[in-house]
Amino acid sequence: MIPFDYRLAPDVDGAVAAATGWGGVAFLAGGTNLVDHMKLGVAAPEVLVDISRLPLDAVEELPDGGLRIGATVRNSDLAAHPAVRRDYPVLARALLSGASGQVRNLATTGGNLLQRTRCAYFQDLSTPCNKREPGTGCSAIGGYTRQHAILGASAHCVATHPSDMAVAMAALDAQVTVLGTSGRRVIPLVELHRLPGDEPHRDTVLSPSDLITAVELPPLPEGTRSLYRKVRDRASYAFALVSVAAVLRVEDGVVRDVRIALGGVAHKPWRARRAEDVLRGSPVDGSPADEEVFRRAAEAELAGAAPLAGNGFKVPLARNTVVSALRGLSREER
């Protein structure tokens, strides 16, 4: 790790100002992912702007029934917030299935969104990686791909985004508030992260001096149910092979609203619009007959899957997990 200059941000504007004009600058909040990468040599900022003490650590219930989540709210505090537990169980469960209790007590909302891939080659300086060093090649292609993408990948990068929280937020149509040098803007969460294309080193649409200040969740209509189902290689404390965040509202036996996002399958939280299209308006009554439409929806989404040698199992796994999640939601007590 190279030496760096540590600056405690005086206020939100000051944080952005402090980060502007520097090539190698990074915001430091919980530290969990950034410090990890600095130790590995994957990140080597010359200046760290500590935003952990800024007043961005509140969860506010909005008048319209939505929720505003400050960027430095700890993952554990967010999961424990009464409004999240009551109104957004998909988010609470996604948060609680990420990392461990003592990591969630450090990790923040903004940091969770900006965590980088867990691709083993990305984290290992001794192997080529286009995301870490553009133009050097992708070692994962032809290598160990268990944690890698089956959707939306490119010939340059097959990494996945590791967050659980972001997958839930993608299904909740969250909006991300960003403060940059030219002021405040709002980005839909599903547009925050990029697909790798030929610029896999860019995870998101943000520039280095952009500071995420909050995430807003719109309210969910009465009768909406949601859940998060994470499938991983051990029972706890592991990244998702596949995860499904599902939000469903069925009225009079018909799907009125459905939002599905997948984790562990793509470079970004993957909003399953094709599956949603199949489901929206379909009759669902909690009977075994639903299975067929759920399966068709999952297959519609996964028709475009392009698994790698070594992760073909993720296609049936994602399909079955989507079906299982929808089955669970549709049969929940009404």
Binding site: A120, S126, Y144, R234, S236
Partner: peptide, 30 residues
């Protein structure tokens, strides 16, 4: 039985999953 497997990348000759995030040993929940 369930988890452990040091994955050798034959192209490089090294164990790719060389940490506790990827070389899974059982957790309490397992």
């Amino acid at each position: 039985a369930l988890h452990e497997h040091s994955v050798l990348d034959e192209r490089f000759g090294h164990v790719v999953n060389h940490d506790f995030a990827e070389y899974h040993i059982a957790t309490n929940s397992d």
